[in-house]
Design a binder for these strands. Sequence first.
DNA 1: CTGAAAGCGCTAACAA
DNA 2: TTGTTAGCGCTTTCAG
Lengths: 342, 342
Amino acid sequence: MSANGAPKPPVIADVARLAGVSVPTVSRVLTGAARVRPEKEQLVLDAIAKLNYRPSATARALVSRQSRTIAIVAGNTSQYGYAETIRGIEEEARADGYTVTITVVESVDDEVVSRAVDLVRDQSPAGVVVLKFDPPGVATLNHLPHDVPLVAVSGVRVRDVPQAVLDETRAAEALTDHLLELGHRTVHHVRIPPSRREDGRTTGWRRALKRAGVQSPKVFEATWSPESGRAIGREIAGDPEVTAVFCGNDEIAMGVIKGLSDEGRRVPEDVSVVGFDDHPLAAMWSPALTTVRQDFGGLGGRAFELLRHAMRGEDAKRFSSELPELVVRESSGPPPAGRGRS
Amino acid sequence: MSANGAPKPPVIADVARLAGVSVPTVSRVLTGAARVRPEKEQLVLDAIAKLNYRPSATARALVSRQSRTIAIVAGNTSQYGYAETIRGIEEEARADGYTVTITVVESVDDEVVSRAVDLVRDQSPAGVVVLKFDPPGVATLNHLPHDVPLVAVSGVRVRDVPQAVLDETRAAEALTDHLLELGHRTVHHVRIPPSRREDGRTTGWRRALKRAGVQSPKVFEATWSPESGRAIGREIAGDPEVTAVFCGNDEIAMGVIKGLSDEGRRVPEDVSVVGFDDHPLAAMWSPALTTVRQDFGGLGGRAFELLRHAMRGEDAKRFSSELPELVVRESSGPPPAGRGRS
DNA sequence: CTGAAAGCGCTAACAA
DNA sequence: TTGTTAGCGCTTTCAG
């Protein structure tokens, strides 16, 4: 138990000693905060290499009052869109030497939200990205301290916070237009749990319908589970008025198609069904799904980009939007004979 | 710029002052390290509440040399199994007041791996969970310092490190047996990228075949993308010998089915196809997928459980295994007439 | 350009 | 039981 008890990692003082300089000098070459005579700098560099020294992130965080950490707050992490967005953020952050933490907020319950907020604050992160695709995300966003760089990621723009969005509203319009152009009289909508009163997907659908002069029919409410889509599919199978359905995401669309086929209705011959996201399995589905491609990974990357600006204190870029691309495949087609627009 | 420059968060000294006690006393009630007279304790508690004080995790980490952070290392994060496992870990960890960080290792490249290892070390995490479902995970595991509590998560057991596993080998055997019992002469296998020479899924398949006295046919190699499964499906569509296919995961199975149907072959009438994982969409598929249910979320939870033991220094629990459950649905059936076992 | 001194917020050791 | 004194490893004044 002498020279052996765990080979403690080298600290800055060890480097200084080995290089024959003072601790602050080592610090200076580490941070580049001030110029150091080249020869000494080399000595320090050699010592660092020799000892395989790494500065303590913790100590740095203590003195600078912030860590090289980005906190991601999300209401969900395993859902495709969330997972991909997180991956995108992590990738960019890692390239910049940041570590990302994940904090999930499971509900809008005050207790839960404030616990999550505390967890985030305790990390004194250099920045925070909140995925506000759902109510928990939104709730948390509102309780987060405003003294730390913050960006939100979502489908619709709000004020106050820099934001990376996918223009879901316009994408939903395009999708609805596509169905209308195929000759359908109207388009029904199955929505996923909205992040607030109404999401861009629903708004875009409504807008396209209005522009075409048709009144929006009653909205069907799905959960995040494909099973809920299936139930709705079964339900609408009996209604001949329904010839086109726009679903909140691909997974729900798959469920709806399943439910429809449970009842013997064919897609797209009897009813057209379109999704949203271009899930990796969308093209594998039978029929292959017509949908809209969302680059969630890129969205995450753009969010980090915005955050980087905010962390630098540059207030310039506060908004980054992108229009998803319409992908027409097999699940959409003209309405059955006699049921189209006159 | 006087009493206004950002309302700095209260520190322990503020609490001590307000409560009229010394700083260490506050620390004592915070940590419970030593008994404090109840009346003073109350004073401290009041002050803490009044100031809305939260101890600095950073300062604590500096002195204790470790943070309330769990680092998760993974080769992938958006894939269903990974994402769910991560969710499971995070959930348990959060309940214990830990924050989780994600570090992804994109390849087995030395540079990449050591960068990831550094990123992890810099956090001085209280523990590390590595998802060694793939080569990058395995590679990183081997380079991680052994002086921090570590647990691995995977499908097969290895020595040295505490581990939470799903018994994929036995599950694969059960699935293969199921196909054999249906009357198929042999079962073909499409595998996903293995974490090492061979994974449990492949081993179990081989073992079941051997037990049945049939030689294992050539293995088809898929990537993580369903598209690769589709290509393989098209390829095997022409081979009448192939009547049953066991795929490395559900997504690949969906791809294979798509490829088969591209070529006009029906599932399960012409060929049976089974997957692995019980993906949320497996039941929505047409035909609904026969597969094996894996509780990835639970797996993550058990991994954290193991880690908690390791962090406490208890060396007791070092292994946690669970047998996935066979789920027979529609994609498997007897071989076509004349092509079954004599 | 460089070193000595101070201090980030907290816990641990030591007296009292 | 409690306060005083030392640091944890680093960056930041401040002299020189």
